[in-house]
């Protein structure tokens, strides 16, 4: 586990969520709003367009507390979210960013 992932508050295990979404100005707000209005902290966010730019991929680093399953189901309901995958903390996407967070 790298320092970014370790820096997350609390002792709960970190989890990485991978979301495939439509790429427009409101999508990020829809996604993070689901977390913030439940006082569920998002520790890390990464988002970039994919393919022709009509879609994006959002990576979220969150703590795996007992609400995670409910959160995933809520995210899946969003009209602009095309798919959600769960990865363990070991996923390398945030690890590779380490040098930007020294």
């Amino acid at each position: 586990m790298n320092s970014i992932v370790k820096a997350c508050k609390s002792d709960l295990a970190p989890t990485v969520l991978e979301l495939d979404v439509n790429n427009h100005a409101g999508v990020m707000s829809h996604v993070v709003g689901l977390f913030s209005r439940r006082a569920y902290n998002v520790e890390g966010i990464l988002c970039m367009p994919v393919g022709d730019g009509s879609r994006s991929r959002i990576w979220l680093l969150v703590k795996e507390d007992e609400r995670l399953e409910q959160m995933v189901r809520q995210v899946e309901k969003l009209e602009d979210v095309l798919g959600v995958q769960r990865h363990g903390a070991a996923h390398e996407v945030f690890e590779r960013l380490e040098e930007f967070f020294q």
């Binding site: 100005a25 409101g26 707000s29 709003g33 009209e79």
Partner: peptide, 14 residues
Amino acid sequence: TYGLSIPITKHNFL
């Protein structure tokens, strides 16, 4: 309006 209505709609459009 878009931002205000996100949490109280099923979906919204600008």
